[in-house]
């Protein structure tokens, strides 16, 4: 009986190892062949999808939730200046048009990677109003060190509610 338990346990370990190897060596390659992970073409971001230039910036959902859509590209973030309300859960949806970039919100603990072909999403709540620098935190090319955006966190009452089709940035225009 003891021997049998040992045999079953050993088989379970081997089976788990087999399954995990199968996942990485078979399932993921098949997934990529089937088009998984290529949901977004970095070359056509400006033509269709949610990252067209008229849709970038802060948008407000029906329940007062704020969603910010951004593109990171060599060597600017678009929009370069984001404005969000404080003490509200802000969902960032970020993609890249070329290389891998990373938003890191200086002065906070938050950061988000921008990967070409993928949408990275994270929800942050900024408690402290103020202006934060958002440098690129992933080496992306010759102009990487000057790639820097801005985040303005304003108190909730100063962030006027957005209309359904309205997008807000703090770019000087």
């Amino acid at each position: 009986m003891k021997k049998r338990i040992g045999f079953v346990a050993a088989m379970a370990v081997v089976g788990l190892a087999f399954l995990s190897i199968r996942y990485y060596e078979v399932d993921l390659p098949i997934w990529h062949l089937l088009g998984g992970g290529k949901g977004l073409d970095p070359a056509t971001l400006h033509l269709r999808g949610e990252f067209v230039e008229s849709n970038l910036g802060a948008a407000e959902g029906p329940a007062g939730s704020v969603t910010v859509r951004m593109i990171a590209q060599q060597f600017v973030f678009v929009p370069q200046c984001i404005v969000v309300p404080a003490d509200v859960a802000v969902t960032f949806r970020v993609t890249s048009a070329d290389a891998v970039h990373m938003l890191s919100f200086l002065g906070t603990n938050y950061g988000l990677r921008a990967v070409p072909g993928e949408v990275n999403q994270a929800t942050f709540t900024f408690t402290k109003p103020g202006e934060f620098k958002v440098p690129c935190h992933e080496f992306c090319g010759a102009g990487h060190y000057a790639m820097r955006g801005q985040l303005h966190v304003v108190p909730r009452d100063q962030f006027a509610s957005l209309l359904p089709g309205e997008r807000r940035t703090c770019e000087p225009r």
Partner: peptide, 27 residues
């Protein structure tokens, strides 16, 4: 063999929150 990748391929990106979109402008 095909079940897992097929199910993965269907929801490969997080669901997009429903917001009404402004008029499309293509540069």
């Amino acid at each position: 063999l095909f079940a897992i990748p097929l199910s993965l391929a269907k929801n490969h990106s997080p669901a997009q929150p429903a917001n009404s979109t402004p008029p499309l402008r293509i540069p």
